[in-house]
């Protein structure tokens, strides 16, 4: 049977998370379909049709889907899910919001945030902030799965030439309405896909001091992240948070600056290839996972690093 992925997008562009989800779904079956739900989203449907491995795109386009309100979008996924053995979405806030709502409509127990596919019905997923890995087998006839995107490579954006089929939209559920977005605009790479991430913690002491990290980030082509303590203190916006309850990242290089290394923070970055820790406390737990530890006051270390990168 075929497999379906739900495409994450903003009506103009596909989010990178979709490409990792394609790679995961392809491990189950090569007959991969992509579902695009949105408004005036032809460009997204065309881009989805070009993703390497996508055999068919199903598009459902209506004004009621413009902002992805889950009460409206979930019935569309529910409507086609039974055509497939598996339905995949990224374990981003998009997928986390949508998929369990669909799962309940189908009376299916979803499997969240998988990091490995063992077989058609068996998956590995981190539990307890990544302190344990559970191997689980789903007995439901349709499997609903969200994918930890950092655990799967991105599929190629080009190479496919799928047909696009239109689905008939359902009516507005009338349960919710969109008010506004306050999205963080940045010229830097996206946190979850950047190959280098530099994160600051409570040790940064203020939002202004994050400018120091940003200058280093720009020299490295890095994204900027943060611990929860730094977000709670208002130094940076919430979408910078890395960790169990924030974003999971696994870049080639992760630089933790003034971050102690609580388990909830490690949960979001310990799969990085190389970890650097800069902390003035040589006992800080972050050093236990760091490949390169630099015991230093960050207010001298970061300017020194910036200068040395020239």
């Amino acid at each position: 049977m075929s497999v379906l992925i739900v495409v994450e997008h903003d009506n103009e562009q596909i989010k990178a998370s979709t490409l990792n989800t394609v790679t995961a779904a392809m491990q189950i079956d090569e007959d991969l379909h992509a579902l695009v739900i949105g408004h005036n989203c032809d460009a997204v449907a065309s881009a989805a049709a070009e993703i390497e491995g996508v055999k068919k795109v199903r598009k459902c386009d209506a004004a009621d889907y413009e902002y992805g309100l889950v009460e409206n979008v979930a019935p569309v996924v529910e409507g086609v899910a039974r055509d497939y053995s598996h339905v995949f979405a990224p374990a981003s806030t998009f997928g986390k919001n949508l998929m369990p709502r669909v799962a309940a409509m189908l009376d299916v127990q979803q499997v969240s945030d998988i990091s490995e596919i063992v077989s058609d019905d068996t998956f590995i997923r981190p539990i307890y902030a990544g302190n344990a890995l559970a191997t689980v087998r789903s007995t439901d006839d349709v499997k609903l799965i969200t994918v930890r995107t950092t655990a799967f490579d991105a599929a190629g954006e080009h190479g496919g030439s799928a047909d696009v089929e239109s689905l008939t939209p359902s009516a507005d559920a009338g349960l919710s309405s969109f008010v506004k977005h306050d999205l963080t605009r940045s010229e830097r790479p996206e946190l979850t896909t950047a190959s280098i991430v530099i994160s600051g913690g409570r040790g940064m002491q203020s939002g202004d001091n994050f400018n120091m990290l940003e200058r280093v980030a720009d020299k490295l082509g890095a994204a900027v992240g943060a611990s929860r303590a730094a977000v709670d203190a208002g130094y940076v916006p919430n979408d910078y948070q890395v960790g169990q309850t924030g974003k999971v990242v696994a870049p080639d290089l992760y630089i933790a600056v003034g971050i102690s290394g609580a388990i909830q923070h490690l949960a979001g970055m310990k799969d990085s290839k190389v970890i650097v820790a800069i902390n003035k406390d040589e006992e800080a737990p972050i050093f236990q996972v760091a490949d390169f530890g630099w015991v230093a006051d960050l207010f001298s270390a970061i300017p020194e690093l910036e200068a040395a990168l020239d």
Binding site: F178, V179, H181, D182, L183, P237, D239
Partner: peptide, 14 residues
């Protein structure tokens, strides 16, 4: 106000 990956989203719920 919802904390979403890109920032914040405000919605009205019945």
């Amino acid at each position: 106000v919802r904390e979403v990956d890109g920032g914040l989203e405000t919605v009205r719920l019945s």
